Computed example of a mutant assay.
Amino acid sequence: MTVAVIQFGGSNCDRDTVQALTAMGVDAELVWHEDGLPAETSGVVLPGGFSYGDYLRAGAMAARSPIMDEVRELAEEETPVLGICNGAQIGCESALTPGAFTTNESARFQCEHVYLRVENADTPWTRAYEEGEVVEFPIAHGEGRFEIEDERLEELEEDDRILFRYCDGDGNVTADTNPNGSKHNVAGVTGEDDHVAVMMPHPERVSLPELGSTDGRGVLTGFAES
């Protein structure tokens, strides 16, 4: 399979993602958004960064790039699509997943390691983990606070569409363990079908032993096993 890692003006985690996937034996390539998706595309990553300088809203301009029409078409065909950080913002803005990511409660850019609790271990992105398992990923965002209507969030929770929640090292989910003010400590969700997902933490930055941790490798396995 070929995973297309889409580059927008301002993407800066695209090469990291390609290297992480390639090291796992996944055929991945950078795709400039104006060039469209290759015919053989069988997976898509919307990487982190600051597409279009986060003008208007983070991810808003990239979501309206013509290539996103192609991404939505592939998603409807059950092609795996993963949005990471800025890619998560793009995914929500594109209606691939529900909710929105907005300014951190601290109103500051936050770059740190956080603990995540696996909420649903029966998705392509979490099957390498156990439900309730605690992993440690880095975050780096200024607009990472997940917001959604209460009724819609209840539906997501009832349908097991929450991937991860921010927690402490023992898996306790509290206000103190929430780095950005995300509703119910949500760090990642799936679309209507679980082959589409978005998350704010960066799995590609903790996917190789050389990076000091392989906690994020399980997320990227969603492409290797598709």
Rank of each mutant, 00 (worst) to 15 (best):
E210Q: 11
V219G: 07
A121H: 07
V118H: 03
A187W: 07
K183G: 09
A4T: 03
G142H: 00
T102R: 06
V45K: 08
V206K: 10
A100G: 05
W125S: 04
K183Y: 08
G10E: 01
E130K: 14
G191V: 12
L116I: 06
P201Y: 06
V173A: 13
T190V: 03
V196K: 04
H195F: 07
L37K: 02
D150M: 05
W125L: 07
F164K: 08
A75W: 01
A20Q: 04
S226A: 15
A107K: 11
D160Q: 13
D215Q: 06
E34M: 11
E149L: 08
G49I: 03
D54H: 02
G191P: 00
E210D: 12
R165S: 10
R205G: 02
Y166Q: 08
G222F: 12
F50G: 01
R64E: 02
D35E: 12
L21I: 03
C13R: 10
A121E: 06
F146H: 04
G9D: 15
N86W: 04
V81K: 07
T22H: 15
N178F: 13
D16A: 07
L116M: 01
E136G: 01
V134Q: 09
G216C: 05
H33P: 00
V118T: 01
A128K: 09
A224M: 14
G218K: 13
G25R: 14
F8H: 15
H33N: 09
R108A: 11
V31T: 04
D122I: 04
G218W: 08
L220H: 13
N172W: 02
T97A: 15
I67E: 01
S65I: 01
V186F: 03
F50L: 07
E78Q: 07
R145A: 15
P124K: 10
V198N: 03
F164S: 01
P38I: 09
G91H: 04
F146I: 05
R64T: 09
V114N: 05
A100Y: 12
F8P: 09
D193A: 11
T123A: 04
R72T: 10
G99T: 02
R64G: 01
T17I: 13
D160A: 10
L211F: 09
L116A: 08
G43D: 08
E204M: 00
D159I: 13
